Computed example of a mutant assay.
Amino acid sequence: MRFSQRIGKTSVRDSIQIESIDEKLENRLWNTIQINFFDVIGVNFHHKIDNDSDIGLVFNSIWQEFFENRADEIPKNQQRDISAREFVGYIKDWFFKSNWFEKYDFLEFLSKIDINYLKIEFDVRCNNSLKKEMSAYRLVDGHIVQITSEEEIVEIEDALVNSSKWEPVNTHLSTAIEYFSNRKNPDYRNSIKESISAVESLCKIIVGNNSTTLAPALKIIEEKYKVHGALRSAFTALYGYTSDAGGIRHSLLTDDIEVSMEDAKFMLVSCSAFINYLKVKLEK
């Protein structure tokens, strides 16, 4: 994570792309459209495309149904066949000028063509690109679905309070975000570790005992700040008693158990929300 993000000058939402598409994601999505859609269905820019061919039907569907253009204005060559070069060039020009949500509209449209007709698994390739660039959206059954909500982003941002009092908590949480949002080499295993450590650090600060661990600290907090016992037990169980003898750091996070982005995101958001909850309790 960059310095500007750690001190709160750059929003966490810049790492997890919600209601936005940066240049890297934009380029990757276009490459996916070009390589995993047009190339796969056999679009050759140097050959003519008959209006009644399979590719011609796909092109006409995109032209008339998505762009809502006039049928007789689709780019054609002198032989009145569809010009693949001009057609894809039109789409490319539109794509890089369009709004972020319009790009997702187009991906959704292509996905539905694939599901209903082509069967080339466009959504799988597209989702790989979205995942690599930390998009908050995925293609599910021909629909763009938001997998990271505004509320989740707010929880993480609120937990990153720039205060010396909470510096150890912020350090662990920032590191968890860094591991999670690394687009070249995400480390979900260590992201979970750091998310848990952020909660544990907060509990140590609250009880004033740097040598304690999460379970006994939560027990003290439960009694002193009226945290519901069921909630305390749930978090203690969820985090697997983060002791050196066992628990989540030595079971869930062992090398033989796969840890996914969804696991890491759940822990990051849950830990951030719990941190915010405990801070509110302290203020009362």
Score class of each variant (00 low, 15 high):
Arg2Asn: 11
Arg6Ile: 08
Ile7Gly: 03
Thr10Met: 12
Ser15His: 09
Ser20Tyr: 00
Lys24Asp: 11
Glu26Ser: 13
Arg28Cys: 02
Thr32Pro: 09
Ile35Gln: 13
Asn36Thr: 03
Val40Glu: 11
Val40Lys: 13
Val43Glu: 05
Phe45Ile: 12
His46Gly: 09
Lys48Phe: 05
Ile49Phe: 11
Asp50Asn: 14
Asn51Ile: 12
Asn51Gln: 14
Asp52Phe: 15
Asp52Gln: 15
Asn60Met: 12
Ser61His: 08
Ile62Ser: 09
Trp63Gly: 09
Glu65Leu: 12
Asn69Met: 12
Asn69Val: 00
Arg70Gly: 11
Ala71Ile: 13
Asp72Thr: 10
Pro75Trp: 08
Lys76Leu: 07
Asn77Ser: 14
Gln78Leu: 12
Gln78His: 10
Gln79Trp: 04
Gln79Arg: 15
Arg80Asn: 15
Arg80Gln: 14
Ala84Ser: 15
Arg85Ile: 12
Phe87Ile: 03
Phe87Thr: 03
Gly89Cys: 05
Trp94Met: 08
Lys97Ile: 06
Ser98Glu: 10
Phe101Pro: 01
Glu108Gly: 08
Phe109Met: 09
Leu110Pro: 05
Ser111Arg: 02
Lys112Leu: 08
Ile113Gln: 06
Asn116Pro: 00
Ile120Met: 00
Glu121Thr: 05
Glu121Pro: 00
Asp123Trp: 06
Lys131Met: 08
Ser135Val: 03
Tyr137Ser: 05
Arg138Ser: 06
Gly142Ala: 03
Gly142Trp: 01
Val145Lys: 14
Ile147Glu: 14
Thr148Ser: 10
Ser149Arg: 07
Ser149Gln: 08
Glu150Lys: 13
Glu150His: 14
Ile153Ala: 07
Val154Lys: 11
Glu157Arg: 07
Glu157Val: 06
Ala159Lys: 03
Asn162Gln: 11
Ser163Lys: 02
Lys165Asp: 02
Pro168Arg: 00
Val169Tyr: 00
Asn170Glu: 02
Thr171Phe: 00
His172Pro: 06
Leu173Asn: 05
Ser174Tyr: 01
Ala176Leu: 04
Ser181Glu: 10
Ser181Ala: 15
Asn182Thr: 04
Asn185Cys: 03
Asp187Met: 00
Tyr188Ala: 04
Arg189Asn: 10
Glu194Val: 04
Ser195Tyr: 03
Ile196Met: 07
Ile196Tyr: 05
Ser197Cys: 12
Ser197Leu: 14
Ala198Gly: 06
Ile205Glu: 00
Ile206Trp: 02
Ile206Pro: 02
Val207Glu: 00
Asn210Phe: 05
Asn210Asp: 14
Asn210Trp: 00
Thr213Asn: 04
Ala215His: 03
Ala215Trp: 01
Ala217Leu: 01
Glu222His: 03
Glu223Gln: 13
Lys224His: 04
Lys224Glu: 13
Ser233Thr: 11
Phe235Gln: 01
Ala237Pro: 01
Asp244Val: 13
Arg249Val: 11
His250Ala: 06
Ser251Glu: 10
Ile257His: 07
Ser260Met: 04
Met261Val: 06
Met261Tyr: 09
Asp263Ile: 13
Ala273Pro: 04
Asn276Leu: 07
Leu278Lys: 07
Lys281Ile: 03
Leu282Val: 07
Glu283Trp: 02
